[in-house]
């Protein structure tokens, strides 16, 4: 008879859906010593990632750092970068979460093609993205020419163009992250909510979003980081002008042409800001959300 089998199913489910808040077993297991064939490549991999940054730190113009970093140009570029990356992240969330939902929760012909197209900006050189955006929104672009004749408004060389370029390259990160999480999420919670009388929109807001909250946060974080570092699409589509379109990566690239110590100093600032964002959000916001949702 199947009484034990029934409780087994139940226990498995409890564990999966996180009803067990603290179980000591996994923690002990996690402290296991890594076998050498894993440990050595892991250490090499980490070194490979961190060594260039350490070198950057070592060779940085520490003496002049204060004045270089607080120069008006540097602050202007940093402030613009933070503003545009934040705006791009917000747009990514507004467009990307619904897009991920449609990809994960509905089925329609050509869905896999759509999924591939969504990730295209991820694998293409960003400069190509910039050219593509110009083809659409440039003054002679498909849409841009209409905007120009109708409103006398052109998108390139504006801060809006920076946000568009950053959103273009950052959106796939959010969609991928949320799509994956939605597809692996337990559908039965959404079913339970629907049975209780919740409309699909209410289910999305009150059950689905909390369920995938951590991955939305992680996706938003990745999008922000990607937007912050965006260079190719920005310089191609939005151009380069201090205060309007010159973000930190552009300022760094141009400083490298004739003033390498400023370029180094700006790189340090961008690195510090990115790291602070990654560490800060990881430790507080994301882990907080994970704590709530599990």
């Amino acid at each position: 008879m199947s009484a034990p089998a029934g409780s087994d199913v139940f226990m498995t489910d409890r564990t999966r859906s996180g009803h067990e808040t603290t179980s000591p077993a996994p923690r002990v297991a996690r402290r296991r010593r890594a076998p050498l064939p894993l440990l050595v490549p892991a250490a090499l991999g980490f070194l490979f990632l961190v060594a260039p940054f350490v070198a950057l730190l070592v060779r940085s113009p520490w003496g002049d750092l204060g004045s270089l970093v607080t120069s008006q140009g540097a602050l202007q570029a940093l402030w613009l970068s933070l503003r545009t990356a934040t705006a791009a992240t917000v747009v990514c969330l507004i467009l990307g979460v619904p897009l991920a939902w449609v990809l994960a929760r509905t089925s329609f012909p050509g869905q896999n093609l759509v999924r591939s197209i969504v990730t295209l900006p991820l694998v293409m050189p960003p400069v190509v993205g910039g050219v593509a955006l110009l083809s659409l929104l440039g003054r002679r672009g498909l849409l841009g020419s209409l905007l120009d004749t109708a409103f006398g408004f052109t998108v390139p060389f504006t801060t809006l163009a920076v946000v568009i370029a950053e959103t273009f390259v950052a959106l796939p990160f959010l969609v991928l992250s949320v799509d994956g999480s939605l597809r692996s999420a337990d559908l039965r919670y959404e079913q339970a909510a629907a049975v209780l009388g919740a409309s699909p929109w209410y289910v999305f807001r009150r059950v689905t979003l909390p369920l995938v909250g951590p991955s939305v946060a992680a996706g938003g974080l990745l999008s922000f980081a990607r937007a912050l570092g965006e260079f190719g699409a920005t310089i191609t589509f939005a151009g380069n002008f201090p205060g309007t379109t010159q973000t930190m990566p552009l300022a760094i690239y141009l400083a490298m042409q004739d003033d390498p110590s400023t370029a180094l100093a700006l790189s340090l600032v961008l690195m510090a800001v990115s790291l602070a964002v990654l560490i800060g959000l990881r430790s507080r916001w994301v882990s907080g959300l994970i704590g709530v949702a599990s």
Binding site: P52, A55, L56, V58, R59, S60, P61, M256, P260, S261, A263, L264, S267
Partner: peptide
């Protein structure tokens, strides 16, 4: 020496 890292990259 200060310029080296950028150039190295």
């Amino acid at each position: 020496s200060r310029r080296a890292p950028v150039a190295l990259v």
